[in-house]
Design a protein around this nucleic acid. Structure first.
Lengths: 260, 260
DNA sequence: CGTCCTTTGACCGAATCTGTTTACATTCCA
DNA sequence: TGGAATGTAAACAGATTCGGTCAAAGGACG
């Protein structure tokens, strides 16, 4: 880690604290004071300001990122699984976006990363039912964001059910960036939740081109709810963990495969 | 002061300051004054101009290139205005929530703070079109969150337009926690944006009881779009900055007033 | 040449930031 | 139960910085 400067402006320090918090899931007052060479009081003031701005949540001894509280290790944990692969997949998927069109973005850690890394000069219309994706794009100046409503599932922070289904039924998008929990040639595309599966089906129907983002760890997995087949997918972006043979097998069925 | 060989005009100097800031990520007043052989006051004027133009973000002691700070200045900044009053208003509003019913929560810094301070043992059904509110409630274990979709306005991070209107038209809630940019006996309830005003009207229609959360700084203000009258409001929660006379005048028209 | 106007410097009270101190709440252990 | 240990909150102090006003300097222009 880079050694700290002898002096940082308060907003810089707060920004860095926020980054650390989101990265590690938790920060504590004393470590931050040591890290930035300021007193604990100053750190507390920073945390208070960030808390007031709604970006962090203050807890005894430190703070945790707003959104996730202690009782949901899922999201924080999953976000570190195959992180490199997901970053490469997200970067590759950026190239599949139209320069000036409509994109539907599914819920998922990979798609959330992609949303966060959209270049500032992008000019897209984005539709999503995923809160983490929406939160990252809401202040992106070039993007027209349309939020799909519905009942919000705690686990994935994505909207499902009637409102979501009817919203997707109303639109036609150039491309959908889809995520899945499992995929295979025989098992198709599967996810643990029926309601989410229904939304994914609606997304597929609403887009002319279907791009699936899935790291190789998902290959061969089958979950409870099936929402489609690989034949519905125009392009699969995965990582090199998928063997060339498996990739070929998939491509022989008409789905283009990119191993990032 | 003796003439310096390379005298610069103000626009040139500002251009150079901007370049330096973008190059090194930060500039400070004193160094710039030294660098350009002018007084710190002049540098401050330059930074002020650049800040107003949106090219730089002014901080205590210097400036940072715009965009380098991830979080929206709007949100962080506005949130410090009348922060104490808003905290008290939010705390008071907590007492107005049903123990086990349906609540609509409007967009706004006060309502966002209320959402963040909902006790963990709450068991409510919450409907909102505000991303900041949704983000705070998405992982609250006791709350069933329903997201209202629509086009997302950058400034407020709230959904508006057709999807939002039709969603609110479908529901009946026990109470709506409403926010506003301006309120007065004659001017009614006003906000700068027509689309947001339409959503607010829909929210009012969808709830049996209307609770307005507004700090006293909003009193007497009138903005472009009017979305209702104080007569639509069952309860106004504000702070002690509202004079008792004004409070009485409002109460005489049938709206209960609480000055937190 | 005089006048207007912009830019800059200088001054001073107000505001901000940070550190220090003190008081207080909570947890944990003897 | 008492009392460290830890973390928090509030009040104060010192230093720095900010913002507004006023006046001087230097061009632009009739």
């Amino acid at each position: 880690m880079e050694r700290i400067r002898n002096h940082m402006y308060a907003p810089e320090r707060q920004q860095e604290i926020l980054r650390l918090a989101q990265e590690s899931g938790r920060v504590d007052v004393l470590s931050l004071a040591e890290e930035f060479q300021v007193t604990a009081e100053t750190v507390r003031r920073d945390l208070k300001a960030l808390d007031r701005a709604g970006l962090l949540r203050r807890v005894h001894g430190g703070a945790i990122p707003a959104g996730r509280l202690g009782f949901e290790p899922d999201l924080a944990e999953r976000d570190t699984v195959a992180a490199d692969e997901k970053d490469r997949i997200a970067a590759t998927a950026l190239g599949e976006l139209p320069v000036d069109g409509n994109v539907i973005i599914d819920a998922g850690t990979t798609t959330a990363r992609l949303a966060a890394s959209l270049p500032l000069d992008s000019a897209l219309t984005v539709v999503t039912h995923a809160l983490p994706v929406a939160a990252r794009l809401a202040d992106h100046p070039g993007i027209a964001l349309h939020l799909v409503g519905g009942r919000v599932r705690h686990r994935t922070r994505a909207a499902v059910d009637a409102w979501a289904l009817s919203a997707y039924a109303e639109i036609n998008a150039d491309v959908v960036l889809l995520a899945t929990n499992g995929f295979s040639a025989e098992g198709g595309l599967t996810t643990p939740d029926l309601a989410e599966a229904a939304v994914k089906r609606a997304m597929i129907s609403a887009a002319r081109r279907v791009v699936l983002l899935a790291d190789s760890g998902k290959f061969g997995q089958e979950h409870f709810a099936r929402f489609g087949d690989l034949s519905h997918v125009d392009l699969l972006i995965t990582d090199t963990g998928l063997s060339p043979e498996d990739a070929l097998a998939i491509e022989s069925r008409g789905t283009e495969v990119v191993r990032a």
